[in-house]
Simulated assay, not measured.
Amino acid sequence: MIDTHVHFWNFDPVRDNWISEDMMAIRKDFSPTNLVSVYKDLQITGCVAVQANQSEEENHFLLGLAGQNEIIKGIVGWVDLLNPDLDERLNYWHNHKTIKGWRHVLQAENRDFILNPAFIAGVKQLKKYHYTYDLLCYHNQLKAIIEMVDQIPDQPLVLDHGGKPDVKSQDLTAWAANIKTLASNPNVSCKVSGLLAEADWKNWTEKELFNCFDVMFKHFGTARIMYGSDWPVMLISRPYQDWFNLVNKYAERFTADERKLIFSDNAKAFYKL
């Protein structure tokens, strides 16, 4: 089994200022050694490490960890997609085969950034090097994401955290409609990950999360959904095992082959692990 979405960091209160005071559980260092015993208990064989810092130094940091920890099977790094020398940078990073794709924190950007022709041109360049691209956005940004995706029909894309629906309010109508539209693009996959951060951290219910899972699985199907934890961010709500068990419980409705797709094969195919 593969966990397609984890982060590692040496906590820096200035650089990591998105980790607010009410997230005390994650205002510290997290390394692969923190995951080894949990993964062993749950029979998870590896993970994809996703950038948490928007710098090329982050790529070196994650590559260093991957060189010392075999649980890291792939890396989603960061590169400046607006850089006029982007092709040179992609060519440089292409020598590091553990890097499978790239991500920018689009949830922190506005519509004009997402639909900037230069940014979209940058994403289009990724195909030349067989890279993937992770889409990170809030539910209220999905319309812009859809317009962006419509312009890059042959680039492998994955929606992180299901597009961050408002689990807490359960106002899911607009989000569900946008997920349906986005999923009509066959090059887009979806991660079942990160939803605890969008819920009431201490008082969410299984039904609230399953309502979101229903939409994601209805439109993406088991062939384009992959399991992820969003560890350690999810620790603001529950221990790792609770999230895994929740997704595993939902997946009981599927066949053994379908569960294998969700927890393993889709990730291996998408990220070329």
Rank of each mutant, 00 (worst) to 15 (best):
N17W: 02
E88D: 11
I26T: 12
D12G: 05
P165A: 10
L172P: 01
D3R: 15
V167T: 12
M23G: 01
S20Y: 02
N69L: 10
P153V: 04
I75Q: 03
A176V: 02
G101L: 01
T222D: 02
K127N: 09
I75D: 01
Y138K: 15
A256V: 12
L63K: 15
S229M: 01
Q170T: 10
D265E: 11
F11I: 09
D230R: 06
T98Q: 09
R259E: 07
L42K: 09
Q125V: 14
K73Y: 01
F270V: 04
N203H: 14
N266Q: 12
N266H: 12
D214F: 09
A256Q: 11
K168T: 02
K202R: 15
I19P: 02
D12R: 08
G74S: 06
H219R: 02
I2V: 06
I19C: 01
L135W: 00
N69V: 07
A121N: 13
A108C: 07
L115C: 05
T205S: 13
T173M: 13
M216K: 02
A118W: 03
K97R: 12
W175K: 14
E57L: 14
K249T: 07
L246G: 10
S20K: 07
T222P: 03
L246D: 07
W201Y: 12
M148L: 15
N110Y: 06
V38P: 00
Y138L: 13
A108K: 10
K249V: 01
D257G: 15
K40N: 06
S55F: 01
M216C: 03
F8D: 04
D80N: 13
G221V: 12
G194P: 08
L142S: 07
G74A: 12
Y92T: 10
L136I: 08
S237H: 11
N69I: 08
Q51M: 06
Y271H: 04
V123E: 02
R224T: 05
A269K: 13
W204K: 12
A251E: 02
M23R: 04
E208S: 14
D16I: 05
K143Q: 08
I72H: 10
K207D: 05
S189C: 13
L86Y: 07
Y129Q: 11
S237E: 10
M23E: 03
A177G: 12
T181S: 15
K128F: 04
H130T: 08
N245W: 04
